[in-house]
């Protein structure tokens, strides 16, 4: 497991909450530029795994390396600066702000203006602000929301709000992007567009890890699928092999398992 050709390494990470073992000895690495799907029944530990990688909670044991560096107990905002961005399962936009401003907030770690800078508004600060406006507009074009820059984010329909969250996450110039059920609540048309968008995000060199319940999308989009069940990693491989895996079938359909130890 070398960190030269991996961007994220999870090494025997475990965590429990009040006696409930949420994740048990999870091991996997992500290759740069890959799209990996994380699936499993409800309560399998997908969200907990996301929380570990984004630094919201540290693992009880084991460790997580991002670009070869252990993330330890680094605060959430520090990990964003290092290059980890995410979207939320229940869209969490800044509702009082415009669509454009939401994307600009995403650029927080890539800009530097402080409270004095904003008050003095030096030429350097004005340049930075103009650059941020320009980049935010480009990102809105990228997700197809260019015309809606001035609208209040709360007024957008759900599908567009999800696209806006993507643009906002991309604004932090991430190396690794975590998407928490990006297609939830989208219609077929919107889901197709989302798939294309994620594909072109990968095209920009970003590694993607996504939790998704839409199997058609996951199977089409992902190079690799990791299956969790009750805190354990039960399958890991290309979509086709995972689809036919017995343990996965058992986990989803509730058949009795042959080997209870895995």
């Amino acid at each position: 497991m070398t960190s030269d050709n991996t961007i994220l390494d999870i090494e025997t990470a475990s965590i429990s909450f009040g006696g409930v073992r949420a994740l048990i000895d999870i091991n996997f690495s992500l290759a740069p530029g890959s799209i990996t799907g994380l699936i499993g029944p409800n309560g399998a530990g997908k969200t907990t795994l996301f929380n570990l990688v984004t630094g919201i909670i540290p693992p009880d044991s084991g460790r997580i390396l991002f670009m070869g560096q252990p993330i330890g107990k680094k605060p959430v905002h520090e990990l964003v600066r290092m290059g980890i961005a995410r979207t939320f399962q229940n869209v969490e936009l800044f509702s009082s702000m415009s669509v454009l401003e939401n994307v600009q907030v995403g650029m927080h770690t890539r800009t530097s203006c402080g409270i004095f800078g904003s008050a003095l508004r030096t030429p350097g600060i004005v340049r930075e602000e103009n650059r941020s406006l320009e980049k935010a507009a480009q990102l809105l074009e990228f997700v197809g929301l260019g015309e809606h820059a001035k609208r209040r984010s709360a007024d957008l329909p759900l599908g567009w709000q999800r696209l806006l969250e993507l643009a906002r996450a991309m604004a932090s110039e991430p190396q690794l992007l975590l998407l928490d059920e990006p297609a939830a609540g989208l219609n077929t048309n919107e889901t197709d567009m989302l798939g294309d968008l994620i594909e072109s995000i990968r095209g920009r060199g970003v590694t993607v890890l996504l939790v998704e319940h839409d199997m058609a999308l996951t199977m089409k989009l992902c190079d690799r699928i990791i299956v969790l069940d009750r805190g354990r990693l039960i399958a890991d491989g290309p979509p086709r092999s995972v689809q036919d895996d017995e343990a996965v079938m058992a986990a989803y359909l509730g058949k009795p398992r042959n080997d209870a130890k895995t």
């Binding site: 605060p75 959430v76 905002h77 939320f88 936009l93 702000m97 401003e101 907030v105 927080h108």
Partner: peptide
Amino acid sequence: SRVGRALRAIHDGEHAASAMGID
């Protein structure tokens, strides 16, 4: 400014604000 946007972001959702890299 960037600072004002960060403050308003904290108001709208502190959790999401820190996930955007805001200290």
